[in-house]
Every structure is written in C-alpha cells, then in structure tokens.
Amino acid sequence: MNNLKTAKQLNSFPKKRSLLRLSRGSKERFTDKLFLSISLLPVVLIALLVLALWLRTQPIFESQSLWSLLLGQTWHPIKKQFGFLPFIAGTVWVTLVAMVLSVPVCLFSAIYLSEYARPSTRTIMKPLLDLLAAIPSVVYGVWGMLAIVPWIQKSFAPFMNKWLGYIPFFKVNNPTGFGIMAGGVVLAVMVAPFIIAITYEVLQAVPNGLRQASLAVGATQWETIKFVVMRQCLPGVIAGIVLGASRALGETMAVLMVVGNVPQLPTSIFDAAYPLPALIANNYGEMLTIPLYDAALMGASLILLLVVLVFNILSTLILSRIVGRTWT
C-alpha cells in the first residue's frame, strides 16, 4: 500500500527541473557535502563550547592556581579572591538531596508503569510526564517559592529540628525556608519525568521471556523484579539516574529562586546554599565591570560543563547499548 503511493509520488520527479539548473547528479553531490558539513556541527559545537569557555577562563590562572580556585573558600571578586568551593559544595548538596528524594519515587513509579499498570494507565502517563517536563524552569521556581518554601519554613523544618535537630544534618540554622531542602524538592520534581521515562524504557527492553522464566518457577512478581529484572537493568537504571543528576546539576532558575544564595559551606539540609548555576546567573550583570570577574564566572560555567559532559557521555554510552537511544 505504502509502496504504491510512493511510486506515484516519485513519478513526478524527472519532469521538474531543478531550480539551479544543475544536473541531478551534481546537485546530489553538492547536497551530500552540504548535509555532511551541517551534520558535523553538533560534534564541532561540543568542542567549541569547551574551547571558548576554556579560553575565557584563562586570565584567571595568571593570579591563581587551579587548586586554589577549586578549594578556595573565600569569594571576594574585588580582592580577586575567587574560591569556588562553597559553590561546588552548594551544587553537590542540592543535587544529592534532589536525587535522594527523587530516585526511589521515580524507580517505583517506573516499575509500576512497566510491570503492573494496565495499558490505559500507561497511555495517560506519557502525556503527563511530557507536561511535567514541559513546565518552564521559572514556573517551577514560582511554585517552589509559593508552596515549598513556606511549607518547609512553617512545618517541615521545625518538625525535623524538634525531633532530629541534635544531628547537624537536620539542624535548622536558617529560619527562612529558602535553602537546600527547598531546592532539592523542586529539583526532585523537575528531574522526575526524565528518570521515570529512561527507567521505563530500560525496563521495557528486558525480554518478557526472562520475566516468565522467573515466574515459571513460582516467583512472585516483586521477586521477579527484585532478583531478575532489576539485576538485568542495573546499568541502564544507573545511567538514567546519572543523566537525571546531570540535569539537576545544571538547573539554574528554579534552584536560584528557592535556594537562598549564600556562599557558605552548608552543614544542614536547611542551610542556604549557592550552587554554581545560580552564581553565574546572579552576577552576569557585573562581570564585565570587575577585573577577572568574567573569567571566574566563565570558569564556573566550564566546571559545570565538564562535569555534565562526563556524566552525559558515560550514561549515554551505556544507554545506547541497552535501548539504542537516550532520547525520551
């Protein structure tokens, strides 16, 4: 059927003369070359991103070593002190809290969808995840400010402080509600559609025969998932989590709006933090007015880019082996 239709479409080709009055052969050779060179753009773009940020970061190494940058704790642009450690720590804290909150929920949801849910539930979930992924970052930020921050300030933080406050990790030193926890909750929801979609695909790539092999000896469905399906999927699930983490790492606006933005080394999940993307976004306005400031901020972007690149390359390679693609 399809072929028949195609044949009809194709019949009209030779009659039309090409616009450039080139022979079809030379036109073909031209477009081949053109398309090939455009296609190399993504490869070149990655190199360009790294190169450009690297070159713009260079000036800062005249006054500071790499280690004093990465491990320095004071951020004082006017005195040319650019210690990234508080910002790196902030990024790590927010990302970790987000992943701890998000990963178990996402894995269970994806397993439910793939292994238990009826087909009708599955068909609802796809557009729902798409919508969740489509909501802009600033809207997540607004939601965080209006719903999550007050909740943490009024209920969650006092509660945790009362019962677990003797552990530094849960102590409330910052009564505003703006902090790592708020950023973590917002990010957890933001990365959920990615992690669920990837995990779901990885689970779907497990052959049914393998599930049946386990069910056939009388295993329950959960035992099958626990001992067989998850064991088979582990690399893919980890890759999905890493991909989710790299999204969380680079997320800017939503986090910036709820995380408090205080350059310090946090000790509690309720402390304010200042992740790298927030640093870049908050200070772009002044960066050309203070010497070396722009180099420092480009350096922050470079750190972010390199970490994300490593995460992405590893997980993409693993996933492409399992499901043949990573795009959801």
Partner: peptide, 20 residues
C-alpha cells in the same frame, strides 16, 4: 558520532549555552 554528540548537547545546561 552525530547522534552521540546530539545526546550529549541535549544535556548541556542552558546557563552554559547562555555563557557560550
């Protein structure tokens, strides 16, 4: 290679594109 680079670019944070 092109697919791999696209997948990688897809994960690059927008703030990095902004800086670039």
């Amino acid at each position: 290679w092109v697919r791999l680079s696209l997948d990688i670019l897809w994960g690059v944070p927008s703030i990095v594109y902004g800086a670039f």
